[in-house]
């Protein structure tokens, strides 16, 4: 098998590669942020008017710890009652599974073909 000789990369082309990578990285982090699709937020489903520790579902010990931390029933109201929403659709779950499986499949397939080339150059064809 003929030996593959990689081209020598110019300084400018090296710089361009770095810029491409950094742009993609920053994009992956900030695009979901800009589109406001990021993160899961908590919300209070059933607010309690004029809350007391009992109304917030706290027993005496729990209430004592909150008071030691400097909370009153009013200031602790949102902290105690807000909950995540874990509902999801089957469609979204399937999309995620397909994306993950497809990603690893693609990865292994491309890697395998490149790897065969490496091995045959390193160890010879037989």
């Amino acid at each position: 098998m003929s030996h593959y000789v990689p081209p020598k990369q110019s300084k400018l082309s090296q710089l361009l590669d770095v810029i491409v990578l950094v742009t993609l990285t920053v994009g992956a982090l900030f695009v979901p942020l800009w589109l406001n699709m990021a993160g899961s937020s908590k919300s209070v489903a059933a607010p309690v008017a004029s809350p007391t520790w009992e109304a917030l579902g706290q027993n005496a010990v729990q209430a004592a710890q909150y008071e030691a931390l400097g909370y009153t029933p009013e200031t602790a109201h949102d902290l105690i009652l807000s909950r995540f929403d874990y509902s999801f659709t089957a469609g979204a779950l399937i999309v995620m599974i397909v994306v993950i499986v497809a990603y690893y499949f693609l990865m292994l397939k491309f890697s395998e073909s490149e790897y065969r080339e490496v091995i045959s150059e390193k160890f010879g064809d037989n």
Partner: peptide, 16 residues
Amino acid sequence: FLGYGTQLVAMIGFYI
């Protein structure tokens, strides 16, 4: 997926 499904897909999109 339960909390950050969008980021997960954005992230894998990036790696692809």
